[in-house]
Amino acid sequence: MAIGLDLLVQFFPNFASIVLAATGLAIIFGIMGVINLAHGEFIMVGAFSTSLAYNGGIPFLPIDALPGLSRLIGAMLFAALVTALFGLLVERTIISGAVPNWISERTLGRPVVTPLYDRLLDSMVATWGLSLIMVQTFRNVFGNSLSGVPIPFGELSYGNSSIGLYQVLLAGVAAFVLIALYLVFVRTDYGMRARATIQNESMAQSLGVNTERTYMATFALGSGLAGLTGALYTPLLSIEPGLGSVFLVDAFVAVVVGGSSVVVGTLLSGGLLGIVDTLFSNVYGTFAGRIALLIVAIVLIRFIPQGLSSLVERLRERRLEVD
């Protein structure tokens, strides 16, 4: 019984870290066909922004003067916004090449950059380069470490164990993010256009969808979510420029296991991988947890290469046929 309770409590932070690490990457990959290897560094931007805002490092923005918890929440929202704007900048310059092309058309008379949409390997190289530049630039500008942010809330005691309450609550935030994303994709105009763009880009274009603007918004949304993840994990981590690498592996495994559907895929893979990680880490140790997680991922990729969300789609199609 005690072990069951222990596993249940431990599941929450594991689920949260996988889901939050993966959503931003999943959106950009699923909708734009861009593999963002700088995803970890976008998370790092979120963490750095949170730390700077919380500790009063942002001029003209006295977030550090806010009382109590609102200071932390203010810093986190600020960080998500900053990262979204940063993502927008990256999309306009590197991913779509709109800015360099605008300049080159006026100077050379022709565009020089082909957009990286649906060019998986090319986008990996470009964003990997971006990640290297970002890590060293942050190191040069901000130094090797930034002062952190204290972990809010106290501890949650159960049996003879205890855990930080904040880590458990993160699972709630992760669930909230998934629900919000679901609503964005099914209830908003942007969501409809985004889904139309995935299904058939040229058809969407001919029906009047500005796919370029959809891509732009998608990248900003994915970046903003990466920034939110960085913000949420700022209290738990030591803030240094390389911190994004921790998230990248989890995020990739989750996206590959989950498949192309952002919400369903991330939910299923976060749940499954969270259970596997919790079970093995708790019983056999952290190392065993990592191994088990990767083995499950390999097995799933072998037998369900389209990801867990493809299973759900197949089920739904079968039911439609029966009807």
Partner: peptide, 22 residues
């Protein structure tokens, strides 16, 4: 005794195992 991979930064299960061992 537990050996932690260098890439790991999530310690709730390690903490719980320490508490169990007391």
């Amino acid at each position: 005794e537990e050996f932690i991979p260098l890439s790991n930064s999530e310690f709730s299960s390690t903490i719980s195992r320490i508490q169990d061992a007391d």
